[in-house]
Amino acid sequence: MEELIAAIARGLVEDKESVTVKADAPAEDGTITYHLHVAEDDMGRVIGKQGRIAKAIRTVVRAAATKKEMKVVVEID
């Protein structure tokens, strides 16, 4: 899942080296939280106007997680 999030983010940003994804330990309900970090200058590219790109990233990742019977949350830091 981390590779999927990183691949999507690298396609959007200019500074591809600054993209990192970290996962938290699963919560009690089994939900895994992924934290996406990008360069400060690229933050707008990843979030998009009115959060549309961020919402799309979350939708794609949630769909991929559903196929693996996982629950995930993506946070952009």
Results as ranks from 00 to 15, higher is better:
L36E: 08
G48Y: 10
I57W: 03
Q50H: 10
R62D: 15
T20Q: 02
Y34E: 10
A63Y: 01
E14K: 09
V61A: 08
A25K: 11
I53N: 07
A25M: 03
I57D: 02
T31C: 10
R62L: 09
L4D: 08
A65S: 13
E28W: 02
V13C: 04
L36Y: 01
D41W: 01
P26W: 00
D29S: 06
T31M: 09
K16N: 03
Q50V: 07
M43E: 14
R62I: 10
G11H: 03
L36P: 08
T20S: 10
G48F: 09
G11L: 01
V74E: 12
V72G: 08
H37D: 14
Q50L: 06
H35S: 13
G48T: 12
V19I: 05
V46L: 08
G30P: 07
D42T: 14
E17Y: 02
L12M: 05
E28V: 10
I5H: 01
E3K: 01
A56G: 10
R58C: 04
K67Q: 15
D77H: 12
D77I: 12
G48R: 05
I5P: 01
E14F: 05
G30E: 06
V13H: 03
T59S: 15
S18G: 02
E75A: 11
I53M: 09
Y34Q: 06
I5T: 02
A6I: 04
A39D: 15
T66I: 10
I53W: 07
V61K: 02
M1G: 04
D29R: 01
S18D: 09
A63L: 09
I57Y: 04
H37Q: 14
P26F: 00
M1C: 02
D42V: 14
A25S: 13
R10K: 14
G48P: 14
I76H: 07
K49R: 15
A27P: 06
A25C: 00
E28H: 05
Y34M: 10
E3I: 07
K68D: 15
K55W: 08
I76D: 09
G44P: 12
D24E: 15
R10I: 00
I32G: 03
A65F: 12
M70Y: 13
G48D: 13
M1R: 01
K22A: 13
I57H: 02
V60F: 04
D41N: 12
T66R: 04
D77T: 12
A7C: 02
Y34H: 10
R58Q: 12
D42C: 13
G51Y: 09
E69M: 08
T31Y: 11
I47Y: 07
V38L: 04
L12N: 03
E69I: 03
E28R: 07
S18L: 06
I76T: 11
A27V: 00
V61E: 05
A9E: 01
D41C: 05
M43T: 14
E75T: 13
L36Q: 03
E28Q: 13
T31F: 09
T66N: 08
A6M: 02
A65N: 12
I57T: 05
I47W: 05
L4A: 11
I8Q: 00
V13K: 01
Q50K: 14
L12C: 03
R62K: 13
A23P: 10
